[in-house]
Amino acid sequence: MTDASRKVIVLAAGGTGGHMFPAEALARELLARGRAVALVTDRRGHAFGDSLPEVPVHRIRAASPGGGIAGRLKAALQMGLGLLEARALLRRLQPAAVVGFGGYPSVPTVYAAAHAKIPALLHEQNAVLGRANRMLIAGARRLAVAFTTVARIDEGDRAKAVQVIRTGNPVRPAVAARRTSPYAAPAGNGPVNLLVMGGSQGARVFSEIIPQALARLPESLRARIHLSQQCRPEDLEEAGAALSGLGLGGLELQSFFRDVPERLAACHLAVTRAGASTIAELTCVGRPAILVPYPHATDDHQTANARQLAEAGAAWLVPQPDFTAETLAARLGELLSSPATLGAAADAAHRWGTADAASSLADAVLGMLGAGAGTNGANGNHHDHNADSIAKGAAE
């Protein structure tokens, strides 16, 4: 092992799952390749915990800009202190590279790396470049993305030497294991497995609209539908009462599904939000979906995510204002009576997705350092595109 390969690779991530899970997936892949890894997050961020005890966690100060002048000043002070902490940490660790996963807690560390001329790679999970990554892209050598086009990449940044590579967004190992699960469209009068998920705690709009939409379907079709739906705990009783009298073929309501990979593999159609992790899991397994973007997502990135899948023929985008009982009932009736349409969308989703994003991401990091990239996963779905193809027409 060379001296360079002994150097630690620092991962900087915000504390939410959308940022932290890709960081954990990359950490596992780098550790498997014999590289040392450290995580930097803020004092509130969740670490990898007991799952990766060999990864040391360093916490620095960071904050998102708050409301009002006082909030912005407080955030600026925290970020300034975090930058000093990050500079001291990087001087001590002397890392080979820094990888930023977005979220404001990544900003001080990646900014300090760029200032110290340490190679930096950014990973963007959504179809719109996040605010933290927009702040940092000028100092990065590579930008790894999950979508085929990414908005909010500035023209000036596109003209610089930053290399844009489509690696995909890592999924949980249990989801990746379902990559080869074949899709069998519902046939004849057979059962239809309908999966409804609105994030980890469900979405209230789904709890309100799904029962009303199903009630509008013919009784013969309702009898075929086996519904698995996530609901917020406070909505479970009301949703259950509304659904129980519809004569469904099967009904299961929970506030949290612990077996999402199995449910994804078994479903014929999903109704979900359009967050980056949800998109990655749907397309890894290859399942058609009606996507209802969360309307208050930053920069409306969920709509951008959903639009790319819809344009690929893998999903149907329904903005929340249009997500009514009437429109959903019509869409469900149309789709569930057309197995060929569902099958084509499942195939398109599978082609779009990948199960080896963590491997591709590790390749991108080590390739930036001139190290051997190693091999991709057995699924052979490595994505690599230049900056023009990723950011084509995407600046806003």
Rank of each mutant, 00 (worst) to 15 (best):
Q94C: 09
L73E: 01
G130R: 04
G100H: 06
L93Y: 00
G100P: 10
A114V: 14
A86Q: 07
K117M: 00
T109R: 01
G139S: 08
L89R: 11
R91F: 05
A120H: 09
L83F: 05
A138H: 11
R87W: 00
N126V: 03
L122F: 04
L81A: 09
V110I: 07
K74F: 00
G82T: 09
A132W: 10
H123R: 02
A132E: 13
L121Q: 08
N126T: 06
L77A: 14
A127N: 14
S106I: 03
P105I: 09
G130T: 06
H115N: 02
A88F: 01
G80Y: 03
A138S: 13
G100A: 08
R134A: 11
G139L: 05
L93Q: 02
K74P: 00
L90D: 07
Y104K: 08
A138T: 09
A97M: 13
L84W: 10
A114C: 14
E85S: 15
R134S: 11
L83V: 00
G102T: 11
A116V: 04
N126Q: 03
L129Q: 07
A114T: 15
A113R: 01
M79V: 15
T109D: 01
A112N: 09
S106C: 13
A120C: 14
M135P: 00
E124Y: 06
Q125V: 09
N133Y: 10
A70H: 12
A76S: 11
L136F: 03
P119E: 07
T109Y: 00
V99D: 13
L83Q: 05
A96C: 13
P105F: 05
G130I: 07
G103Y: 05
I137K: 02
A138I: 01
T109P: 04
H115S: 09
A96G: 15
L81N: 02
G82H: 06
P105Q: 08
V98I: 06
G103C: 07
A114E: 12
V99H: 08
Q94W: 00
F101M: 12
A114K: 11
G102K: 10
A138R: 14
V110F: 01
I137M: 10
P108L: 03
L81H: 04
H123T: 02
I137C: 01
G103V: 09
I118M: 13
R87K: 10
L84E: 13
V98R: 00
G71D: 03
P108A: 02
G100W: 01
L121D: 04
A70V: 15
L122Q: 06
R87I: 03
L122C: 03
M79Y: 03
A132I: 14
V107R: 00
G130A: 04
P95Y: 10
R134D: 06
G130P: 03
A97G: 13
G100F: 04
G139A: 08
E124A: 06
V99R: 11
A114Y: 12
L93M: 05
A132V: 11
G102H: 09
A116D: 15
A70S: 15
M79L: 15
A76T: 12
G139C: 05
G100Y: 04
A112Y: 03
Y111P: 00
A138D: 12
H115E: 15
F101E: 04
I118C: 11
Q125N: 07
A120W: 08
K74H: 07
A86W: 02
R131L: 15
A88M: 06
L84N: 07
K74T: 11
R131V: 14
G82Y: 05
L121A: 14
A114F: 12
L73M: 14
